[in-house]
Design a protein around this nucleic acid. Structure first.
Lengths: 208, 208
DNA sequence: CTGCTGACAAAATCTGAAGTCTGTCAGCGC
DNA sequence: GCGCTGACAGACTTCAGATTTTGTCAGCAG
């Protein structure tokens, strides 16, 4: 190694750089080792497999990409505003990454597909933030839902088109912002306490 | 040709059969011609390209798959019930096709990806049905939305996870039915007229 | 005249032999 | 002794040449 100790951090940084330069298909462990002026055997002393190395890079990236969302979830704001802001920030962060550097985004998309466990844990974290916002809204009388965790999942599912990277292709359409606003409005309205002057007893029924 | 005239219908049926047997990668125009006891040149008298032939097959399939949805959209039922039923039927139809014969579904998924124009037109048709249901609901005082077409797009987007085939993988999860119910409930609630006893003036704002 | 055939060129796809990459480990040098 | 190296086996990828497929069209048969 060219200077000091070979650390996992240094390996992750070098891997990111190699992925950025060569893309996910061409980036090899030997490339990473070369960037660190080290033999590839040394990389395997710190990460058991290439897959584990890539997963660690993915985790770092997800963590950095959604930095700031957690504070937003805990902001001192009415829940409806907070929810809208949180969803808008999530969408905007993803979209900016995707449109600013599509090639790098495609690279991380490939990594994310490979690292489903890491992604699942990250989504769980996002769901907990959403649950907190909704639970706060219920406590303040702004929202009325059975189970805040179920409602959080529903909100996350309903806005899937605006954060799930399988839909990147749609994020540069001219109408996306309007579509996002429409879904956001629908979803926030859906969390409100129902009116008591109409009979909605049949809402849950699908029968004729 | 082995019996009677060589018709577009017969060619489409043969193409479907060949696709079912060999899959989208291996099905050739010569295979279709062989199934019809005809030279492949004859197939090109009725369809200008292999792509056009596949698009026609896709269109037939989409049409058959969503048969019955249009009647449902026009059923004499409260709009909320009709909407739930329509969404549930759409989801159920897609899911059954996907789980009953995953290989055939994968085949048609490949075709659908190739035939984006045909799929777009089909989605437009579905959106018009949704718009009608919502407009009926507004007329009956059940729903309150600015523009029924915008609301229809929002409902379609919000339920994307349950009809967009990119999500097939999730449709066999144990929790999908619950997730579908939760999103459905959220969406139907979101279309209701708002209460007038709470101040929602800030709903559309995302600022701090 | 009409509808079909089958030989053909160009495009796309397959195949397998050569080359590259991953993951291991005996051993070197500090 | 500790951290690193680099040779190696087996898995995976690449690429050029061989094969298949698409789409055309001159001509044949009824």
């Amino acid at each position: 190694m060219v200077d000091g100790q070979l650390t996992p951090e240094a390996i992750l940084a070098a891997t990111e750089e190699v992925l950025r330069r060569y893309g996910p298909a061409k980036a090899t462990v030997v490339d990473v080792a070369r960037a660190l002026r080290v033999s590839h055997g040394s990389v395997y002393r710190h990460f058991p497999t290439k897959t584990a190395l890539r997963e660690a890079v993915t985790q770092r990236w997800l963590h950095r990409a959604h930095h700031g969302l957690a504070e937003l979830a805990a902001a001192p704001q009415p829940a409806a505003q907070r929810l809208r802001r949180w969803l808008a920030t999530l969408f905007e962060a993803k979209r900016r990454k995707a449109l600013d550097d599509p090639e790098l985004f495609a690279t991380y998309l490939v990594l994310a597909r490979e690292s489903s466990g890491v992604v699942a844990a990250h989504i769980q974290d996002l769901l907990e933030q959403l649950t907190r916002i909704i639970a706060d809204g219920v406590a303040a009388g702004e929202f009325a839902v059975g189970d805040p965790a179920v409602a959080a999942k529903a909100v996350f599912d309903a806005t899937d088109r605006f954060h799930n990277p399988v839909h990147v292709g749609d994020w540069s359409d001219p109408g996306v912002d309007a579509a996002f606003e429409a879904v956001c409005t629908l979803v926030v309205a859906g969390l409100r306490p129902p009116r008591r002057d109409l009979d909605h007893a049949s809402d849950r029924s699908v029968g004729s």
